[in-house]
Design a protein around this nucleic acid. Structure first.
Lengths: 197, 197
DNA sequence: CACAAATTTAGGTCGGACCTAGTATTCTGG
DNA sequence: CCAGAATACTAGGTCCGACCTAAATTTGTG
């Protein structure tokens, strides 16, 4: 990575971290982009250049988050999409991956307190679904791609509900988080298996 | 209904219609609220009073749309939620209900051309899901409400995919719309039945 | 008819998204 | 190693949606 790229990334993370600190302290809507720029000691326009929308300051993992299920399916062509996603989920759970919702309680509280950020999160789950649809093997019968799209939707829904579960338990300060999520995941994937397995 | 209420509704619909005409002609983002107010011959603030967000000018049926699946389940306590929603869907399909996505091709094109409006539609589907969760019978076992939430998510996803299907076919000017949607619905609900039926 | 209540209006502020022109920094080929 | 190209950042704007307040207008009621 060149010096230019390193500096750019540094500026970006500098801004992102300054923003998250301010957002946690005073709430997402309680902080203006100008204040973020001041705190990060850059011009307002630099913030806008790096982060197209204010919400993007918060969800820096957006791209990884959106692509993850599609990658799971593509990287396990031998298994069914259902099995690839389910197994990928349990593996990521043991790693406490941020893609499943693992985060600090302040972060969770900050996002939940903002309608704008919750809407952005909703959109991220929807984009995930779109990526997964694109990664699914195209069905042979014409017009029957409704089943593929439904499969992607249902799988993404399970991931989303489990994400919410992780956040609920994080927010409640639960000690048994992983155990409880593992059980919830087993139930939710088990429910879906007769339809998609 | 009092004169006051009638006049208010009249003003509201007057604004909504003027807005939709302008949006179809010049695109959602190509029209400002001030222009809508001028076209409807009211003050800008009157538009804002009636429609909290610009998107609300377009989706006037929002409330009916969001509440519909929850109502289907509540009004058929003898059937399973799955059967209530499925049967309700097929009934509404024969009526070409706007709740399923039946609309003019210009309207569909206008909404699809706007990222903002598509995001608002996504949010409407999510709100539907929340209403449906609240309407579902609470499960007895504690912690197993994940299955109820998943059921609501999957049912709402099917409704959403079929909504998209209606829009796809409308946009393509398909003559056989209802027949094709009926087939797609049978497949999607059939896929889900082993999990939720 | 007078007064209360609801609705609309006028004229603002604020902040996010976006634009342009110009400056500063890093990279690359001769 | 230096000049010019490419990229990153800055300064200072415009536009518009969301929101506010105070006042005017219209409608309902005792």
């Amino acid at each position: 990575m060149s010096l230019r790229e390193r500096k750019k990334l540094e500026t970006r993370q500098n801004i992102s971290h300054a923003a998250t600190r301010l957002f946690i302290a005073r709430g997402f809507e309680g902080v203006t982009i100008a204040e973020v720029a001041d705190a990060a000691r850059v011009a307002k326009m630099t913030v806008t250049n790096h982060f197209g929308r204010k919400e993007d300051l918060v969800f820096d993992i957006r791209n990884d988050f959106v692509d993850w299920p599609a990658k799971l399916v593509q990287q396990a062509p031998s298994r069914t999409p259902f099995a690839a996603v389910r197994d990928g989920y349990f593996a990521a759970l043991e790693e406490r991956s941020a893609l499943l919702g693992f985060a600090g309680i302040e972060f969770v509280g900050m996002v939940r307190a903002s309608v704008t950020l919750m809407a952005a999160l909703t959109q991220m789950h929807r984009d995930r679904e779109q990526q997964l649809v694109a990664a699914l093997p195209a069905p042979e019968a014409p017009g029957s791609d409704i089943l593929a799209r439904a499969a992607a939707a249902h799988l993404t829904s399970v991931l989303r509900l489990l994400f919410d579960e992780v956040w609920d338990l994080t927010y409640a300060g639960d000690e048994d988080l992983v155990t409880k999520v593992r059980e919830a995941a087993a139930k939710a994937f088990g429910q879906l298996e007769p339809a998609l397995g």
